[in-house]
């Protein structure tokens, strides 16, 4: 699916995943760095957003530093009711991401809440409504949160 983007798009993505200029005319500055025109950069960003190659263009926030709570949790959903359990878990507005993964603990989800205290309440509610034990594996230390992808 990489044919969705050409080499110029790729250069834009690699260059602009971080360090976007915070100045009066940032697109002009970023475009100069990439050796293309400002209009061309804006047009390509718009096009990649329209096609869903980019989720968005802007900030990524650190939940805890914004004052909120964030954790990763997992549960072991029986195969025969996996879909039903996923529907229950996904219905919680605090559940941001949810992935099926290869393990006995087959459902892994991120919970983000308004306050750190609220995490325990949401996990308890998920456990109660699914009838399953929820494994909470909160972060102790961050070594890298770059989330960069070099194309």
């Amino acid at each position: 699916m990489t044919d969705l983007i050409d080499p110029v798009d790729r250069a834009i993505i690699n260059d602009l995943q971080s360090g976007f200029p915070i100045c009066s005319q940032p697109y002009a500055e970023a475009a100069a760095r990439l050796g293309i025109g400002e209009d061309a950069l804006l047009e390509r960003l718009r096009h990649m957003l329209d096609r869903g190659v980019l989720t968005r263009f802007g900030p990524l926030y650190h939940a805890e530093r914004l004052g909120g709570g964030l954790t990763l949790a997992a549960l072991e959903a029986p195969e025969e009711r996996f879909e039903a359990v996923a529907a229950v878990v996904n219905a919680f507005p605090e559940v941001a991401h949810n992935y099926r993964r290869e393990h006995r603990l087959n459902m892994w989800f991120v919970v983000a809440t308004e306050t750190p205290e609220r995490i325990a309440e949401v996990l308890a509610a998920i456990s109660e409504r699914t009838g399953l034990k929820v494994f909470n594996v909160p972060k102790i230390e961050e070594f890298y949160i770059g989330l960069r992808l070099d194309l």
Binding site: T55, R56, G58, P59, L60, Y61, H62, A63, L66, G68, L70, T71, L72, A86, V89, N90, P93, E94, V95, A96, H97, N98, Y99, R100, R101, E102, W108, F109, V110, A112, T113, E114, K139, I145, L147
Partner: peptide, 25 residues
């Protein structure tokens, strides 16, 4: 990961817009 069920900007406060968070996975 075998399947992605949900991926969106996380809610930080109910009266706030959904924000894109640097989440754990």
């Amino acid at each position: 990961s075998l399947r992605r069920f949900k991926q969106r900007g996380a809610i930080y406060r109910r009266d706030w817009p959904a924000l894109e968070l640097a989440a754990g996975t």
